[in-house]
Design a protein around this nucleic acid. Structure first.
Lengths: 167, 167
DNA sequence: AGATTATGTTTGCAATGCAAACAATATGCA
DNA sequence: TGCATATTGTTTGCATTGCAAACATAATCT
């Protein structure tokens, strides 16, 4: 209420217009995130998927390839290539799993961890700055709204295959 | 108030945690948008950039290649390939410009326009559905929060491209 | 006219991403 | 136990995106 003005002057604005504004805001956020990612890529000589994979490995700890692929919602055959490049750059090692000899454990090297410490989370940098500057009440509002939106979106998403199946 | 619960049970949650959640929500939204785009691609046999280019051409009217490239913030040599595929699919024609014989005018064909009429704006579909299902109060909250976020983000990053800036 | 600029294109390169086929290994069932 | 099946990682082949550099052609400036 004090620094940020939400909810006034709304009576004269149609819901459709609000929605249009939200769409535009989200697209601009996505574009800023992309642009930012590209900057990170140039600084650390890592592409977006590469940094993303490395970051997931940092979070997940030692991890099978299929789990990493599932986490990234990519095909394992795709992730093999990404991991290859990370291994080639010395940021990740493939560790054979003694228990199950089909499996490997993907583990960030010291160098990989140094990069993780230096690089912000993928595309997170500016967004974090922005969020941290928002007052708590606004963050709470955003948090709630986004959760609703994600909920609706992901529920909606489940219908996609059927929706597009018949035509 | 009735369907959506925002702002309670927040006292025990740290701001940092709220921020983490927001980040994750935004990432999931991005992922859903991507997935949705892929659905559109399958349905119309058009990739994301192809549909995007076609959509820009529908908005801009007859248009030089360099202008399309500028609008999409891509290199002209990249756009040549995208346009090639659109032309090959019979959705766009290259029209020689009588005034300046270096130039061409890119124009959607009737078939291209039919697709444009049938396809939603790139990646907009589900997000719109989601937003329209939210009650007005929640949309207002989201609108306000996103505006704050975009404001901070764009102040942070001056290189903010004009992306879907108009309705 | 001659130099410079603008426009579209081609070529060469790297990365993402999927599907299909493939070992190698583990697991389940008869 | 032994064979069929499933799982896991990988390889191969293909299409697409995307950029940089070199080019051809045409317009514009001096």
């Amino acid at each position: 209420m004090q620094t940020i003005c939400i909810g006034n002057n709304m009576a004269t604005v149609s819901k459709a217009h609000l929605i249009q504004d939200c769409m535009q805001s989200l697209r601009r956020i996505v574009k800023v995130l992309e642009t930012y990612s590209e900057g990170v890529e140039r600084r650390f000589d890592l592409t977006g998927p590469q940094l993303w994979a490395l970051w997931e490995l940092g979070r997940l700890g030692p991890c099978a390839l299929k789990d990493l692929a599932a986490k990234m919602k990519l095909d394992p055959s795709t992730v093999v290539g990404v991991v290859d490049r990370l291994v080639h750059k010395g940021l990740v090692i493939r560790n054979p799993d003694p228990g199950d000899r089909r499996r490997i454990s993907l583990i960030p090297t010291a160098k990989g961890q140094r990069i993780l410490a230096a690089a912000p989370h993928p595309a997170q940098g500016h967004l974090l700055v922005g969020l941290e500057r928002m007052d708590r009440k606004t963050v709470e509002n955003l948090h709630g709204s986004l959760e609703v939106l994600v909920g609706v979106l992901e529920a909606e998403n489940l219908e996609v295959p059927f929706f597009f199946a018949e035509e």
